[in-house]
Design a protein around this nucleic acid. Structure first.
Length: 420
RNA sequence: GGAGAGUUGUCUGAGUGGUCUAUAGAGGCGGUCUUGAAAACCGUUGGGUUAACAGCCCCGGGGGUUCGAAUCCCUCACUCUCCGCCA
């Protein structure tokens, strides 16, 4: 959620924002403003009425105690109650309309974000390493994996359906190694604390990070228990401090967690249908930071560098892309995608997405901190990024480390994790 | 899954429908006193809404009864104890 004050005081900048994000049609700003005004007007009236009613009730109590007649006061209070009821039903509807629209207003955007329509307008910020050269035509990971018998898509389908897979032998082992390696790197060298928490969370958590209520179709929900499978450990990690007031001294808080991630991929029919790129269940190491507002853009650079370090140590060529206004997700103020080179697919593939949410998530999830004793709590800034998606990392290693005889070499940094 | 007991402000803990609309103690912060400290004494001590004071809201969440609810009713969640089941 953006600061509701912006809606009242700086409508024009929101109008520009919506235009840049191609979301002009998503939010009706005039209606939003109207709902807000009416709703606040009603609330003020109700408060006045309640003040009067509280006073009368007190009076009645006194009269009763003294054994005196209170019928006149009772009559007056009846009128007040009726009026309040009417206003209250109005406020309920107004609040609902306002909240729905307020939730769909995207986050403000950083000045450094290029204005653009879609991924074509994204800006490549830097590249690292080089595309590897092969003396043969490199195969896509799903061909290598199937031929080696370590990726089994047919049995994945049998067990659960399309977009599921089974790892066998080296693939299973390699992914486990990748995850351990990444967690060790982030905790030993980048200052993150390793966390492990629920993969299944309640609706408050899904709402806190912005998955609900807008994108319900994209996630697996267990109706019977009112719980959902997390699409990313961002949900678990960011909601750790939901409804809490943190100490300034404890910031920044940097946490990392590996989890399975569950996505319905509802709108992805026909896209990336082969291989490990787009699947319903995959593993990922997530990085989340809670920081003071002043430092959040510096922290975004650091977080992105932390994710890049994984690829550097694996010696995988990648580029960092700054997403343009139209391609940045609604809750993010600035996003870098890290795209790894896939020789078999002959294209770059997103393997991490690092975002600064400013106070957008913190406001929803009520994550605050106290700057100094006696001061009112202020919202923290939250950031997150993949560090990295494990299944895609496995795919990238398979394609980049393939040999002419159809095998895969093990990257040096993973060797100590694979003591077969 | 069954039975019972709970959930109150930083903590402990009162409060079973009003007339001081949250006792009291501890802790924290400030002060007096002191060479300094302790003790003692005095004061202060949450979140939200609002331009702001006032007002209004918050006694696990939601709903209800009532002129009036921490207090009564319904419902859900969580915690504890016992039983059952179980990796």
């Amino acid at each position: 959620m953006i600061d509701p004050k912006l809606i009242r005081e700086d409508m024009e900048s929101i109008r520009v924002l919506l235009k840049n994000r191609n979301m002009e049609k998503v939010v009706d700003l005039d209606a939003l403003q109207k709902f807000d005004e009416e709703r606040r007007d009603h609330i003020a009236k109700i408060d006045k009425l309640r003040e009067r009613r509280n006073a009368i009730s007190k009076e009645i109590g006194k009269l009763k105690g003294a054994g005196k007649d209170d019928s006149q006061l009772r009559q007056e209070v009846q009128g007040i109650t009726d009026e309040m009821k009417e206003l209250e039903t109005g406020v309920e509807k107004l609040n609902e309309s306002f909240n729905d629209m307020h939730l769909s207003v995207p986050n403000i955007m950083d000045k450094s974000v290029p204005i653009g329509k879609d991924e074509k307008d994204n800006k490549v910020i830097r590249e690292w390493g080089k595309k590897p050269s092969f003396s043969f035509i490199p195969k896509p990971h799903y061909v290598i994996g199937t031929e080696l018998g370590i990726l089994d898509f047919e049995r994945g389908v049998k067990l659960a359906g399309a977009r599921f897979y089974v790892y066998r032998g080296l693939a299973a082992k390699l992914e486990r190694a990748i995850i351990s390696f990444m967690l060790d790197l982030h905790t030993r060298e980048h200052g993150y604390t390793e966390v492990f928490g629920p993969f299944i969370v309640n609706d408050d958590s899904m709402t806190g990070t912005g998955q609900y209520p807008k994108f319900k179709d994209e996630f697996y929900r267990i109706e019977r228990d009112g719980l959902s499978l997390i699409p990313t450990a961002e949900v678990t990690l960011t909601n750790l401090y939901r409804d809490e007031i943190l100490n300034k001294e404890d910031l920044p808080i940097c946490v990392t967690m590996q989890s399975s991630c569950f996505r319905r991929e509802a709108g992805a029919a026909g896209k990336d249908t082969r291989g490990l790129i787009r699947v319903h269940q995959f593993q990922k190491v997530e990085l989340v930071k809670f920081v003071e507002p002043e430092s959040s853009f510096d922290e975004l650079e650091k977080l992105t560098a932390n994710a890049e370090a994984v690829l550097q140590k694996l010696n995988l060529h990648y580029r960092v892309v700054l997403l343009c206004s139209g391609d940045t997700s609604a809750s993010s103020a600035k996003t870098y995608d890290i795209e790894v080179w896939m020789p078999g697919l002959d294209r770059y593939m997103e393997i991490s997405s690092c975002s600064n949410f400013l106070d957008y998530q913190a406001r929803r999830a009520k994550i605050r901190y106290r700057k100094a004793k006696g001061e009112k709590p202020a919202l923290v800034h939250t950031l997150n990024g993949s560090g990295l998606a494990a299944g895609r990392t496995l795919a990238a290693i398979m394609e980049n480390y393939q040999t002419s005889d159809g095998n895969i070499e093990i990257p040096d940094v993973l060797k100590e994790y694979i003591r077969a």
